[in-house]
Computed example of a mutant assay.
Amino acid sequence: MINFPTKQKPKQKSKLNFEFFLGIPFYVMIIILVLIPIGMMLLYAFTKTSTGLISIQFTLDNFGEFFIQPTFVSSMIESIYLSFISSLVSLLISYPLAYILSRRKKITQKVIMALITSTMFINSLLLAYAVRSIFEIVGNSFFGDKTYFLGTDFAIITGMVYLYLPFMLLPIYTHMTKIDKNLFESASDLGANKTQTLIRVIIPMSLSSVLTGFMMVFLPASTTLVITKYLGNGQRKMIGDLIDLAIKNGKFGYGAAIALVLAAILILMVSIIKKVDKYEGVLANEE
Rank of each mutant, 00 (worst) to 15 (best):
Q196F: 07
D189V: 09
K178W: 05
S208W: 00
R200V: 01
S186L: 13
M205Y: 08
L170D: 01
L183F: 13
I172R: 00
V210F: 15
D189Q: 04
Q196A: 11
R200Q: 11
L169G: 01
F214V: 10
R200W: 09
A192D: 07
M160H: 14
M160Q: 14
V161G: 09
F167T: 02
F167E: 00
G191L: 07
T212K: 00
L207W: 06
F184L: 12
T174V: 07
K194R: 07
M216C: 04
M216S: 10
Y173F: 15
P204K: 02
L207R: 13
L169M: 11
Y162R: 03
G213Q: 11
F184Y: 10
F184K: 12
M205R: 07
S188T: 08
S206E: 07
S209F: 00
T212P: 02
I199S: 05
L165V: 02
S188R: 04
T197K: 11
L165G: 02
L169S: 08
S206Y: 09
I202C: 05
D189M: 12
S186T: 14
L169I: 11
M176Q: 09
M215C: 06
D180A: 09
Y173C: 01
T195R: 09
S188A: 15
S208M: 05
N182W: 00
K194G: 08
S209Q: 01
Q196E: 10
N193T: 03
S188C: 11
I179M: 14
V161P: 08
T195D: 05
P204N: 04
L163F: 03
L190T: 03
M205A: 09
L207A: 04
M205L: 15
N182S: 12
L170I: 15
P171N: 10
G213H: 10
Y173P: 01
N182A: 11
V217P: 08
G159E: 05
N193D: 13
T177V: 15
M176W: 11
S208D: 15
I203G: 00
T195E: 02
L211T: 13
T212G: 15
S209Y: 00
K194F: 12
F214M: 11
I199P: 00
F167Q: 02
T195Q: 04
R200P: 00
K181M: 10
M176L: 15
S188Q: 04
L169F: 04
P171Q: 06
Y162Q: 11
D189C: 08
Y173M: 02
M216F: 14
R200K: 15
P166G: 13
E185N: 12
I172C: 03
A192L: 14
I172K: 02
H175A: 15
T197C: 02
I199F: 14
G159D: 06
T177E: 06
V161E: 12
Y164Q: 13
